[in-house]
């Protein structure tokens, strides 16, 4: 009897930790997202949770061209910066991902960490460094400086996702194309680039999301005219705890969810290979 308890108790405890704590931790992880979504539907004036009554009034308030003028400008600025960051990252990172596969292995092992380094550094430190240098050569914080900062910091995300695919491409595909008389450029455009599309999409999504969310680079490199969305939300939170922040959160969560659901397969593939 006593022996049986000694045998079954640890097993029961283990199952409790794994299935009980495991799912509890997942709930802890996801609950804040759900809470922000529910909060955005409140009919009330405060952040009381659970909300007293549901409505879309705070989403409507975001569309109000007078009251939310600053927020709309900030959102547009952030969207422009994010789109340009994705495009810029593509222009530098897609060639790099192709180039790395053509290096000898030893050399690639030296070059690759150089390309990925911006991911490791706290971007706050980078933002300050970029500001100090820009100032030294007479550049003031601006829209374009912010875009360049985002390309430098988030370009490696595009590189990593694209390189994961490029490294697994069958070299005989390019050889076959060359044998059939295609020029190097045609092979690149018609054979290699189309095969890299999943990586480029996954990388683009990550760059877009990270750029849209970035505070620490924009904090130093954006001029007062170029207010970005996360900094505007930060200001709203600090000043007044305006409930419109909840609706803005709702929109951002929807963007993330839509991107993840649409790109789930692509993202999973590039993750499992990196």
């Amino acid at each position: 009897m006593f022996k049986r308890i000694r045998q079954t108790l640890p097993v029961a405890l283990y199952n409790l930790v794994v299935h009980g704590f495991g799912w509890l931790a997942m709930a802890f992880l996801v609950a804040p997202i759900a809470i922000a979504l529910i909060m955005s539907l409140t009919a009330g004036q405060t952040l009381r949770f659970p909300p007293q009554g549901l409505s879309l009034r705070w989403y409507a308030a975001l569309l109000d061209p007078v009251r939310s003028a600053t927020e709309q400008t900030a959102a547009l600025n952030s969207l422009e910066i994010a789109v340009l960051a994705v495009f810029g990252s593509f222009l530098i990172a897609a060639p790099a991902a192709i180039g790395i596969t053509r290096l000898r292995r030893r050399r690639a092992l030296v070059v690759e960490p150089m390309l990925l380094a911006p991911l490791v550094l706290p971007s706050l430190v980078y933002g300050l460094a970029a500001l100090v240098v820009a100032n030294a050569i007479g550049l003031r914080p601006s829209f374009w400086l912010t875009v360049i900062g985002h390309i430098v910091v988030f370009g490696p995300l595009m590189y990593r996702a694209t390189a994961a695919i490029a490294q697994n491409l069958d070299p005989s595909l390019a050889e076959a194309s060359a044998t059939m008389g295609a020029s190097a450029f045609t092979t690149l455009r018609r054979v290699i680039l189309p095969l890299l599309v999943p990586g480029i999409m996954a990388g683009g999504f990550l760059v877009f999301i990270e750029s849209l969310d970035n505070v620490s680079v924009s904090l130093f490199l954006a001029d007062p005219k170029t207010t970005v969305l996360p900094l505007r939300m930060f200001a709203l939170i600090e000043e007044s705890l305006d409930v419109r922040v909840a609706a803005m959160s709702g929109v951002l969560i929807a963007v993330t969810l839509a991107g993840l659901v649409l790109g789930r397969r692509v993202l999973m593939v590039s993750r499992s290979q990196s």
């Binding site: 804040p32 997202i33 809470i35 922000a36 909060m39 952040l47 949770f49 990550l206 999301i209 849209l212 969310d213 505070v215 996360p230 939300m233 930060f234 939170i237 705890l241 922040v245 909840a246 803005m248 959160s249 951002l252 969560i253 993330t256 991107g259 993840l260």
Partner: peptide, 14 residues
Amino acid sequence: LTSNVVRTFAWIVI
């Protein structure tokens, strides 16, 4: 992949 500011905001509520 959800914005840091959004998650921080959720915790103000919580």
